[in-house]
Amino acid sequence: MKVKQISIFLENKKGRLYEALQVLGEANINIRALSIADTAEYGILRLIVSEPDRAKKVLQKVNFVVQENDVIAICVSDQPGGLSHVLNILQQAEMNVEYVYAFVQKKGEKAVVVLRTEKLEPAIKALEKAGIQILKEKEVYCI
């Protein structure tokens, strides 16, 4: 129940984020969720997209440094305390969260949270056990 995420290394150069997004736009690849982690000198653009494999290829073709990672995507209720409840489950299970980002669906009452832990499998088990809805690849790519 892992979901593929695209990570792109971006150096701190004017227009570089735009260029990456433009490449995906031209290839007709839709971005479902996005997060940027950065330092003053460089950053990592993380994306959940409609077609991760093809996204990786088109980006690499124009010399972006791209890596595919597995992440967990879950559904949480879009209300106060929704995300903290999930994090509490992981904390109880002693799972370290490397990063997390969220996006809210247009209509629904649910928010989708993308997270990565050091070890994915035990985290997935802990979340499933607590009754959290974990999203399948297809569900996430075409939200």
Binding site: F9, T39, I44, R46, V65, V66
Partner: peptide, 18 residues
């Protein structure tokens, strides 16, 4: 320049390298 192969999407590894 970082080498293509070292990039695994993990920020910590970049910071460590730096």
């Amino acid at each position: 320049e970082i080498s293509k192969d070292m990039f695994d999407g993990n920020m910590e590894h970049l910071v460590d390298l730096q």
